[in-house]
Amino acid sequence: MKTLRQADIAGGCFLAFLGLFILYAASNIRLGVERALSPRFFPSVLGFLIFACGVGLAVKSWRFRGEDPGIHWPDRQGFVIVVVSLLLIAAYNALMKPLGLPLATFLYAAASIGFLKPERWGVAIVSGLVLGAVSYVVFIRLLDLSFPMGFLFE
């Protein structure tokens, strides 16, 4: 999808299917006690709206013949950076419970900064240590929030 027209046709089709799926899911909602406003009402209306707008968007874009603006996708290296950044956030979340907030924060920050700026690994490790310490002192000790502590601090 290099142009907005292509993206809108694909996006419109996807949204039309999503709308149908929501309509199907809405029809399966248990009704229970009778109410003035059924629990199916809003999901059904929204499912239909998404379906109709999706079809409308796809058709409008299909018929569009003017100047088609491109989409500013990143280059190959940019894509790798975005995907790895997302994977690092996912790993941070997954490691939060087993390792605890301070250690997971240190690992995330060090790995993330080190990845974005490979020539500054020293800065990455120091930043990781600082953020890990902040997470422990401020959020666990001072604010007494129930973040996982991990094996290091339990």
């Binding site: 941070y92 995330y108 920050a109 993330s112 974005l116 930043s127 953020l131 997470s135 973040f147």
Partner: peptide, 18 residues
């Protein structure tokens, strides 16, 4: 941004997790 970005993520994860 290589320092700012991970800091924003750190606070975002903390805020959302809590």
């Amino acid at each position: 941004f290589y320092i700012l970005g991970p800091m924003i993520v750190f606070f975002s994860v903390l805020g959302t997790y809590s």
